[in-house]
Design a binder for these strands. Structure first.
Lengths: 201, 201
DNA sequence: GCATATTATAGAATATAATTCTAATCTAAA
DNA sequence: TTTAGATTAGAATTATATTCTATAATATGC
């Protein structure tokens, strides 16, 4: 028993428990409006524990964000492995995003709506490294098809917005409840549009 | 002189002064991290005044958001008036967004990054009405060209993401400093891609 | 196994920020 | 003028975030 009469509830999974509690709170109330206290309640942990692992709400949000993005990115690279031509690759970018959002809407909602996280310098650096590695890999994958003339030659920084922008925009719409049509029902339309936008004409 | 030795600085433009101060704070520090105190300092007003006009930070953000969206929307409808065919219309949607963001990057940054505002019910209702009116007008404008066969027939809720998603995605990139290439330099690419994605094939 | 270092938990104490509230002042209309 | 409503002021209060010290659990070296 601790000094103040409560047992110490240390568990190896405490970090994960806090992350899940936080995600549920963020999803119900929004990141800005959820309090440390709410997360603490739902995770059934102490304030000290929460600060020990994450250093505050900002830190919880950062960790959640980095985990989410990493999972999303890793999934895409895995699926690109099975593609053998430019059209398949482009369609996979769109369809994977739609699948992923459909499978974990709470996490997706968090990623999409939480653009206002004030990442700590280390988190910022980690995120930057993640992006660089990911986009590097994606560009490597697609590069040969541009060189080979299967895809239009465009300013490099425009490919991702052109291919992924529309499905991401629609996902935001769906996640916020402003449209009912599930992603699965329109994903093909976006895949088709993306391919039309970048295929060599 | 007031009870506590300070003159009352009432001005008719106080509301606007607060909005501008808030935007500057939001842009420098992020919405989540700016405090009422910071806004109060920059606007040189009292806490009472701020709460009187907006009811808190949330209210300031809501007003700013509604003003910004309204201006963006109004501008588009105005420019669509001068268009006489589908291609011009589609390109105008893209180019107007690029122009608008370039002209007021701070406000654009706020609109784009502040997806986490907890609008009060009235603000939410107002925003919904604004969106309905705007998208209603835009769909009316484009409808005839779809009927006439100049544009692809697609699920209605996919047109806007397909046309505007990419330029919005790129604008986010540019506004957050992750790309240097100005919108004006790539806007044509996006206009072209948008038209290719929706033109009748 | 036992001592010791490291990591994790707890929650009271403190610091910071949001919000409310009452009084004073301004403005415009009668 | 007078007066009602709108606006401003800032102290007081309330809510929330953060720090800090004491314990307890766990891992590590011997």
């Amino acid at each position: 028993m601790s000094r103040r009469g409560q047992p110490n509830l240390a568990t190896p999974g405490r970090r994960q428990v806090i992350l899940e509690a936080a995600l549920a709170c963020f999803d119900e109330t929004g990141v800005a409006a959820t309090t440390i206290e709410q997360i603490r309640d739902r995770a059934a942990c102490s304030i000290g524990s929460l600060y020990h692992h994450f250093g505050g709400k900002e830190g919880v949000a950062s960790a959640l964000f980095i985990d989410g993005i990493s999972d999303l990115n890793a999934g895409l690279l895995q699926r690109l492995d099975d593609c053998s031509n430019a059209e398949q690759g482009v369609r996979t970018c769109v369809l994977h995003y739609a699948d992923w959002v459909t499978r974990q809407p709470e996490l997706a909602r968090f990623l999409v709506h939480a653009r206002e996280i004030n990442f700590a310098p280390e988190a910022r650096a980690e995120l930057k490294a993640i992006y660089q590695r990911h986009f590097g890999a994606v560009f490597t994958w697609f590069g040969r098809f541009v060189l080979r003339g299967d895809m239009k030659q465009l300013p490099p920084e425009t490919y991702i917005p052109i291919i992924s922008g529309p499905i991401e925009d629609y996902a935001r719409l769906w996640l916020s409840g402003r449209t009912r049509t599930p992603l699965a029902e329109v994903a093909e339309v976006f895949a088709e549009a993306a391919w039309n936008a970048v295929r060599a004409s």
